[in-house]
C-alpha cells in the first residue's frame, strides 16, 4: 500500500509539474494563469509532543516559518497535533480566518460563496473545529487512527487577507494511503491552492 501511495503522490506531482510547465510555455503569460495546487509532504506538527508548540507555514511563500515569528503576520496556518490555527483572532496578529467546507470536491470548488462566513480563532473554539468528525478528521478509537475526512477541506483567509483552499491528505509520516497503528503521527501532508490576486475564486 505504501508503494501505491508513493506512486499516487509521485503521479500527482508529475501531473502538477506537467501542468505547471505547460503553463510556462504559454504564449501569453500576461493572461490568466490557472492556479495550481501545491503539495506539502509530511510537515512535522510537533511530532514529539515535547516541544509543545505549533509548526507554522506560509501559503504565500510556500515555506515553513520559524517559531520565533509566531507573533508576526508572516505565517498563515499552523499545526499542532490535530489542532489547526490561522493567523487571526486569538491566534495571531494577521487578518486570518477559516471555515471547513464539507462534502465538496476540492477540485471543483471554484469560488468562495459570498455568504460564506469566515471564523477566527477564539480558543478553545477554533475556526477549524477540533474533535473527531467536527472539522477535518475522524478518529477511529478501535484502530486508534486519525483519518482526514474525505470531501472536507479548509477554506482560509491568509494573514494578509488573501484566500486559499487547503485539503489535509494525511496525518502520518510518509502519507501512507491506508495508515496502520504503527505509523508515526503528527506529520501533515496537505495540498492547497493559494489565490494571490485577493479574489475569492480559484
Amino acid at each position: 500500500m505504501r508503494n501505491k501511495s508513493a506512486l499516487a503522490v509521485s503521479y500527482f506531482f508529475a501531473m502538477t509539474m506537467i501542468i505547471a510547465s505547460s503553463c510556462k510555455k504559454d504564449d501569453k503569460p500576461e493572461e490568466e494563469i490557472p492556479l495550481t495546487a501545491t503539495e506539502v509532504k509530511s510537515f512535522a506538527a510537533d511530532p514529539t509532543a515535547n516541544d509543545n508548540h505549533y509548526a507554522f507555514y506560509s501559503l504565500e511563500t510556500g515555506k515553513e516559518i520559524a517559531v520565533s515569528d509566531s507573533a508576526s503576520s508572516k505565517w498563515d496556518i499552523a499545526f499542532r497535533s490535530t489542532t489547526i490555527i490561522t493567523n487571526g483572532g486569538a491566534s495571531g496578529p494577521g487578518a486570518g480566518g477559516a471555515f471547513v467546507q464539507r462534502a465538496t470536491s476540492f477540485d471543483s470548488y471554484a469560488a468562495i460563496a459570498a455568504d460564506s462566513a469566515f471564523h477566527t480563532d477564539n480558543a478553545p473554539a477554533y475556526a477549524v473545529p477540533t474533535g473527531s468528525g467536527n472539522g477535518w478528521y475522524n478518529y477511529d478509537f478501535t484502530t486508534n487512527i486519525i483519518s482526514s475526512i474525505p470531501g472536507n477541506f479548509i477554506v482560509l483567509r491568509t494573514a494578509s487577507g488573501k484566500y486559499a483552499k487547503l485539503e489535509i491528505l494525511s496525518y502520518y509520516k510518509g502519507a501512507p494511503a491506508t495508515p496502520v497503528a504503527d505509523d508515526v503521527a503528527r506529520y501533515y501532508t496537505f495540498r492547497f491552492i493559494y489565490q494571490p490576486d485577493g479574489s475569492k475564486s480559484f
Partner: peptide
Amino acid sequence: RQVKEGKTFGKKPGSLLSVQ
C-alpha cells in the same frame, strides 16, 4: 441519505485524493 445526496466522499485505494 448523505450518500444519496452526494455528500459522502471517500478515497480510492492507494490514493490520498477525495472522490464522491
